[in-house]
């Protein structure tokens, strides 16, 4: 029931925003001077990258709540863990989309699929760390999964800034690769509406998916608890 409500509200809203975003990005925003139409992938690349940087914070906060409350308030801890899982998966999806769109954009513009530039490299590290987080969740069983995953999430949260700084130092020591016409050199004001519509659209889309995944994980937890309870009750039945 609750999942249906999320879909009823979230899906029309997200689709409206994304349609508007698509219209703005493809028809309203001006064609970029040097890169041409290929630059329009930016309106999808940028929101995915921002979302991939947003959801790790949700994951970290939820993991901290889990670690803090797993003894004192197990029900809240379970909810926090479901949120941590949902946001980690969402991080990985947006990170993958960001990397893929970035490569598709880089090939025609820079002439290469990939360069070990500071932002690309640290983004790839973020992707690797969240893959290992989800692998850990898959490889562990029973009650330990949640604690171990929360611990790894704390490690990841502390590691990511170190990764970022170290890669900056690494790259400034060497001549930096040629990066032509990055969006950082300033965006034309007429391009901003497309950016905002797409950001809002992908944000709502991401939040909706996280909510759905969260509710699904909660249901799985409930089923697991229910069957554990039934097994316990069955063992208490007097044997004839």
């Amino acid at each position: 029931m609750a999942m249906k409500k999320t879909l009823l509200i979230g899906l029309p809203l997200a689709l409206t925003l994304l349609t508007m975003g698509f219209y703005q990005a493809m028809y309203v925003a001006p064609t970029e001077a040097t890169m041409g139409n290929i630059q329009r992938i930016f309106y999808y690349h940028f929101p995915s990258a921002i979302m991939a940087l947003l959801f790790p914070y949700v994951n970290f906060a939820a993991s901290l709540v889990y670690l803090a409350t797993r003894r004192s308030n197990p029900l809240r801890a379970q909810a926090a863990d479901a949120l941590a899982l949902a946001s980690a998966e969402m991080t990985l999806i947006f990170c993958s989309i960001g990397l893929a769109t970035g490569m598709l954009w880089a090939r025609p513009v820079w002439g290469i699929w990939w360069t070990w530039d500071e932002r690309l490299t640290s983004f790839l590290m973020l992707w690797l760390i969240y893959v290992s987080y989800l692998l850990l969740r898959r490889f562990t069983a029973g009650g330990q999964t949640q604690t171990l995953a929360a611990v790894l999430s704390v490690f990841a949260a502390i590691d990511v800034p170190i990764v970022y700084m170290s890669i900056r130092w690494w790259r400034t020591q060497h001549p930096s690769p040629v990066i032509g016409g990055g969006p950082n050199s300033g965006l034309d004001p007429s391009m901003w509406p497309a950016v905002w519509w797409n950001l809002a659209g992908w944000f709502v889309w991401g939040v909706m998916l996280v909510t759905l995944r969260y509710k699904l994980e909660r249901k799985r937890q409930m089923v697991e608890q229910e069957s554990a309870l039934q097994a316990l009750e069955a063992s208490l039945e007097p044997t004839r």
């Binding site: 590290m125 760390i129 290992s132 692998l135 490690f155 990841a156 590691d159 990764v163 700084m165 170290s166």
Partner: peptide, 8 residues
């Protein structure tokens, strides 16, 4: 899990 964290 060790290698990604150890990259820096």
């Amino acid at each position: 899990i060790l290698f990604p964290i150890s990259i820096p």
